[in-house]
Design a protein around this nucleic acid. Structure first.
Length: 591
DNA sequence: CACCAACCTG
DNA sequence: CAGGTTGGTG
């Protein structure tokens, strides 16, 4: 067939011409070639490409300009669908203005609540203590609250408990305030009393009559006469013997504490990955199955750094203290906007995850992002479920055991970045993360595989950006490079295999070689790099795969494979088709 | 010599 | 996927 021969010839010159040849030039004559495609129907490797193009190629339009040439017939389709920019990749080109976990959307949505709460808090502040007292008072409360706990509790729960109590106190008082400013003064007052009591009653010495009286008078001065009656009752108690009063307050304190503690414990258990329930789910009402593009955070980067704050046990090679510090203020801010929820040092990871998920959720994440996140969630979870940390494991044996890793783990992509998040008390966390070599975990590996969909030959800079959570020692670097080398190896092996297969099958024209999402080739690749198939593979990858396949096909059909290094020419072509890795993979550090 | 990528092997 | 080897490069 002349047509075939001609097209082959044209194609075979691609290596030479494609670099300099503008895509337009190619596309200009493609229309004439297309009709001949009818003879490709028998090609096993051709699958729905024609039908797919109109719909799936839009994304590639973004890339087409990057790599002029090698577009083959797809160029035609590109032009016809260029107008569409709704593809998932559009995000890449038009990144969200607020890529951090603290997007504007999130911020705006929270502002209202914040403002409200701020107002209420001001009111409450005014009621409970002079403005200048508030901050110190809170701190005092925290210290005192923890003091009255049992030692073991104190050690592990103090930080979270105090946060919890703090937030609970606020939310409770707030709620009361809003609900019944005048209708249930008693309850309100009781609340305030409790709160004050908690802070004051504990320390018999500090709980001097003066302090107490001050609080009451303070409160009273800003209260209406409606409180008078109740106040009398309260004052009677107040004028009881000091021991009695203290006992009373102690009881109140005990009650509050036990209630809060149990609540805290409950929430903690609910949020433990072990129990298949992530705080995220709790908050968002059953995010769904793992594969479902759950809304988890994508600011993986921030996540860990934030989480690990308390007692970070620096693991082997990790040096994450820095990021932890850097991120701390962000955590603080996040806490302000995040819903009041119990926080525990041990589970801060989940917490921050939630924060990010909230933020990201509101950031109009694309399906693409969600897919990425969900995958990460899932794979993270998977690793969290693992039980052993070794420095050199056959990932296969590592991964296999986990099976019902069902619920969407809140840990992110960079949960991966967890190697450093070894909190003292979280033997749970620590022991559930598989560490491969030098701080690289199985999650890092997964991430690397996904990155392969974008870049087959990542530069060291890209690697550093995407794996900013690991210290780039020589071995880490070479390890990552080795991974991609392995990825490529598999990739090219598949390409060669399918190209030869196509030849054997009698495919006479490269145009008959296509790579669609339904093709066996793609399935093989997807199986390898995206086992869970929960990541939306960029359309561009399909194009690159197709190009690669065709390069192999042509080379083999021309007998180039007799040259020992015949593949190198192909590598040279393919390495130019790398595209930027989406921001989600990269560091979110603003620095 | 160091470094990298491909290759080969287990 | 990791180790080791090989070949190319600077």
């Amino acid at each position: 067939m002349n047509q075939s021969v001609w097209s082959k010839a044209m194609y075979s010159s691609s290596n030479i011409c494609l670099d300099g040849c503008a895509a337009e030039n190619l596309s200009s004559f493609q229309p004439d070639l297309m009709p001949s495609n009818s003879d490709s129907s028998g090609v096993s490797l051709t699958l729905h490409r024609e039908g797919e193009n109109m719909k799936t190629l839009p994304d590639s339009a973004y890339y087409s300009s990057v790599d002029a040439g090698l577009m083959y017939s797809s160029q035609l389709d590109l032009t016809s669908s260029r107008g569409s920019t709704s593809g998932p990749l559009s995000m890449r080109r038009h990144p969200s203005p607020a890529p951090t976990s603290y997007g504007h959307h999130d911020w705006n949505l929270n502002r209202g609540h914040q403002a409200k709460r701020a107002r209420v808090e001001n009111i409450i502040k005014g009621m409970t203590s002079p403005p200048h007292m508030y901050d110190t008072e809170v701190k005092t409360n925290e210290r005192e609250k923890t003091d009255c706990m049992h030692d073991d509790e104190k050690i592990q729960e103090a930080p979270s408990l105090q946060n919890h109590m703090e937030s609970m106190a606020k939310s409770q008082v707030t709620r009361k305030q809003l609900e019944s400013q005048h209708q249930h003064p008693r309850q309100l007052r009781t609340r305030v009393t409790h709160l004050d009591g908690v802070s004051e009653a504990h320390d018999p010495i500090k709980t001097s009559g003066d302090a107490f009286t001050d609080l009451y008078s303070e409160f009273e001065s800003s209260s209406s006469l409606k409180y008078q009656g109740w106040k009398k009752v309260k004052l009677m108690n107040y004028f009881q013997s000091k021991p009695t009063r203290i006992r009373l307050m102690a009881d109140v304190l005990k009650y509050e504490l036990s209630r809060v503690v149990s609540k805290s414990v409950d929430s903690i258990f609910k949020s433990v990955p072990l129990l298949q329930t992530s705080p995220y789910e709790v908050e968002n009402v059953e995010t769904g199955t793992p594969l479902q593009p759950s809304v988890s955070s994508d600011d993986d980067k921030l996540r860990l750094p934030c989480c690990g704050t308390p007692e970070v046990q620096t693991p082997d090679v990790q040096t994450e203290a820095l990021s932890l510090v850097v991120q701390k203020h962000k955590l603080e801010r996040s806490r302000l906007t995040a819903h009041h929820r119990p926080k525990s040092p041990t589970f801060l990871i989940n917490d921050s995850t939630l924060q990010e998920s909230q933020a990201s959720e509101k950031n109009h994440r694309t399906d693409h992002h969600r897919a990425l996140r969900s995958l990460q969630d899932r794979c993270s979870e998977e690793h969290w479920k693992s039980v052993k940390v070794r420095s050199k494991v056959n990932s296969r044996s590592v991964r296999s055991p986990q099976t019902h890793a069902v619920s969407a783990g809140p840990v992110l992509l960079e949960s991966i970045h967890l190697p450093h998040v070894k909190t003292e008390s979280d033997s749970l966390v620590k022991s559930n993360l598989y560490m491969l070599n030098e701080g690289l975990t199985t999650n890092h590996l997964k991430k690397a595989k996904l990155m392969f969909f974008y870049t087959r030959y990542p530069s060291s800079l890209v690697l550093k950006m995407c794996f900013h959570d690991v210290q780039f020692t020589r071995s880490i670097t070479s390890q990552l490079i080795k991974w991609f080398s392995n990825f490529r190896e598999f990739y090219y092996i598949q390409m060669e295999k399918f190209a030869r297969h196509a030849l054997i099958e009698g495919v006479a024209d490269v145009r008959g070689l296509t790579v669609g999402r339904e093709s066996e080739l793609f399935r093989a690749l997807n199986r390898h790099y995206n086992k869970a198939s929960d990541f939306q593979v960029p359309e561009r990858f399909l194009e690159v795969a197709e190009i690669t396949l065709r390069e192999f096909y042509v080379a083999i059909s021309m007998g180039k494979d007799r040259d020992p290094s015949w593949k190198k020419a192909i590598y040279k072509v393919i390495c130019k088709l790398d595209t930027d890795v989406p921001a989600e993979f990269k560091s979110h550090h603003s620095g």
